[in-house]
């Protein structure tokens, strides 16, 4: 076992992990931050996306030991300080960007990484960026719409299909 220490959602977190412990296991099982989901466990679906030092990564395909010393943000760290939904989360609610909700944590984390990099993406850029996030309910349309809205763009012209 190795001791790892990292900052998770602004707070110090540490624990003993095996070499093979995945970051997502450490977050869910050690820290009980179960908002980060494991969908496919093969780095394809994106339900496990978190930010490590500001970059979106698939936490099912990164060892916990690799995140030693890192700043990690999970879906639990996304709400505003007063507990209200942040802009992206609120937009997902307003535009019906989720149905079952399983993929939503990863979608929100990817959307947040996209908007940090590209504050006013085109619809094509949003769809391209979500290549590694799979949703089996919505058909993506309202997810894309929510992210466009969260970026402050008028989504009236994007009709629901």
């Amino acid at each position: 076992m190795t001791k790892v220490t990292m900052t998770v959602n602004g707070k110090p977190a540490s624990g003993d992990v095996e070499g093979r412990t995945l970051l997502v296991q450490f977050l869910r099982e050690n820290l009980r931050l179960t908002g980060t989901h494991v969908g496919c466990d093969t780095s394809q679906c994106g339900a496990c996306v978190v930010h490590v030092d500001g970059k979106a990564v698939k936490s099912c395909t990164m060892l916990a030991a690799e995140a030693d010393g890192a700043e990690v943000t999970t879906i639990e760290g996304m709400a505003n300080a007063d507990g209200s939904l942040n802009t992206i989360q609120q937009a997902f609610q307003d535009h019906h960007g989720l149905q079952c909700g399983f993929c939503t944590p990863g979608m929100v984390m990817s959307a947040s990484a996209l908007l940090a990099d590209n504050p006013r993406p085109t619809e094509a850029e949003v769809r391209d960026y979500l290549e590694g996030n799979i949703c089996r309910c919505t058909g993506y349309h309202n997810i894309v719409k929510a992210i466009m809205a969260a970026s402050g763009q008028d989504v009236g012209a994007i009709a629901a299909e």
């Binding site: 780095s43 994106g46 996306v49 990564v57 698939k58 395909t61 990817s110 590694g132």
Partner: peptide, 9 residues
Amino acid sequence: IGDPAVRNR
């Protein structure tokens, strides 16, 4: 290559 999260690692 891959997707954005894969490209970050």
